[in-house]
Design a protein around this nucleic acid. Structure first.
Length: 415
RNA sequence: GGAGGGAUGCCGGAGCGGACGAACGGGACGGUCUUGAAAACCGUUGGGGCGCGAGUCCCCGUGGGUUCGAAUCCCACUCCCUCCGCCA
């Protein structure tokens, strides 16, 4: 959620919001509603102060004076109750509006939408042409995935990973996690079922509710990313300054309904309802979150680059950032069968947007401040396999990238 | 799944419906003393909102309720503990 005080006081803050797609008038509506709310608040608090004082006197008063004083206090109370109701409505109005206001885009973020991201750099050499077989065909042929029975039992966008495909998945997870541990990340296998409250506090509800699977009559929800449980790790806490940065590496299955993607990426496992992912999540000191962001980006690059995949880094434009991110980089990898770059990983700086609802702060000299939170994909396993299967094959043979060989125990697969 | 007990500040632990944002102990921090340290002694020590400020309001697991007044009474929920049953 947004900082209303900054929205009120800092023109740049407002400008950053307006660079995202916001309903016209929303910002003015929030400000007006907040103004009304604060006026009511002052009024109610004055009434409360009088009511408190009146009640206190009753306690001290002589027994014969009490009935009159209780009557007077009762009258005050009725007035207070009425005003409190108006205040509660004003509160709700402000909250509803405020929740719709996105985090402002950073000054360094390009303006525009989906097509206006700026390519920061391109790394690696692109293959001359398309692969002998696309990832779906190749992986089916070599027995790495099974889709027919998976679709029969679970529906479209489900697949089984099989044989060496499984060993490759485990190798990827192992390699990536061990790298992150070496970088100071604490590995976590979190719950993938969470309560509605966790979804709300992580900022996924109500916006992305339609993308989420419900379980147990709506008691629990399957997470679409371990960002959700990782963000809950310090909810409501005031961390000591030396606890930051706190870096976590979540390993989990992720579940997404992929509503509204009918017809997109229908073959293979590029886009599925269930996949495994290693996710980075960092709680950072507000003064150093930009450094952390660059650090996460560098890690993502070294992982994708380490696998030998040609990629480019895109500085995502304001309109494409989503509500929470102030800045976001995507790593797009060349997909030979489509002859274009497709998103593999990304990393975002949420600043204090998410921490405000989570209530995660740092203890500091001049008072406690909200932490900044950042997240980034270390390895979206299934999709990484897609790229590897297209880049490291000749039609019948899959060649394992060097870095994974110690983790999977073979260097190629032929069928 | 059934039966009972509990949730208070960094920790432990009190708290007849009015004097409680909360005793007391421990810890931590600052100071005195000391060559240094320990001990002893003195002091400080929760969070949040609104307001230029004086100040004021809110928070004793969470959400409601009763009352002039709730940490204290009532209801619901969550979590923890004990016992029984079941179980990878």
């Amino acid at each position: 959620m947004i900082d209303l005080k900054r929205l009120r006081d800092e023109p740049d803050f407002r400008a950053g919001i307006e660079r995202k797609r916001v309903a016209p008038g929303l910002i003015d509506d929030v400000l007006a509603a907040d103004d009304a709310r604060r006026r009511l608040l002052t009024e109610v608090e004055e009434l409360r102060a009088r009511q408190n004082a009146a009640s206190k006197e009753i306690g001290k008063a002589a027994p014969d004076e009490r009935p009159a004083k209780i009557a007077a206090a009762g009258a005050l109370k009725d007035e207070l109750t009425a005003r409190e109701q108006v205040l509660a409505e004003a509160d709700a109005t402000v909250r509803d509006l405020a929740l719709r206001v996105p985090n402002p885009a950073d000054p360094g973020v390009p303006s525009g939408g989906e097509d206006d991201g700026v390519v920061v750099r391109e790394v690696g050499t692109l293959p001359a042409g398309p692969p002998a077989r696309d990832h779906a065909e190749f992986a089916e042929a070599l027995g790495f995935i099974e889709t027919v029975k998976a679709v029969e039992m679970s529906g479209s966008r489900f697949a089984s990973l099989m044989r060496e495909g499984v060993l490759l998945e485990l190798a990827l997870v192992n390699w990536v996690v061990s790298r992150l541990v070496a970088e100071g990340f604490t590995p976590v296998v979190p719950p993938v079922l969470v309560r509605e409250q966790a979804m709300e506090e992580a900022g996924f509800f109500p916006t992305d509710r339609s993308q989420v699977y419900e379980v147990d009559d709506g008691e629990l929800f399957l997470v679409g990313t371990s960002e959700i449980p990782l963000s809950a790790l310090h909810r409501g806490e005031i961390l000591s300054a030396d606890a930051l940065p706190a870096r976590y590496a979540g390993v989990s299955s992720c579940f997404r309904r992929e509503a509204g993607t009918y017809g997109k990426d229908t073959t293979g496992i590029f886009r599925v309802h269930q996949f495994d992912k290693v996710e980075m999540f960092v709680y950072a000191d507000p003064d150093h979150s930009d450094d952390e962001h660059e650090r996460i980006l560098a890690l993502e690059e070294s992982i994708v680059g380490g696998l030998g995949l040609p990629y480019r880094v895109v500085n995502i434009a304001a309109g494409d950032l989503g509500a929470a991110a102030a800045r976001k980089y995507d790593l797009e990898v060349w997909l030979p069968s489509e002859g274009r770059y497709r998103e593999l990983t990304s990393c975002s700086n949420y600043r204090d947007f998410s921490a405000r609802r989570l209530g995660t702060r740092v203890r500091g000299e001049g008072g406690n401040r909200l932490v900044h939170t950042l997240n980034g994909t270390a390895c979206a396993v299934g999709r990484t396999l897609v790229f590897l299967w297209e880049h490291c094959q000749d039609g019948d043979t899959f060649v394992v990238p060097d870095v994974l060989r110690p983790f999977c125990g073979f260097d190629h697969v032929t069928r």
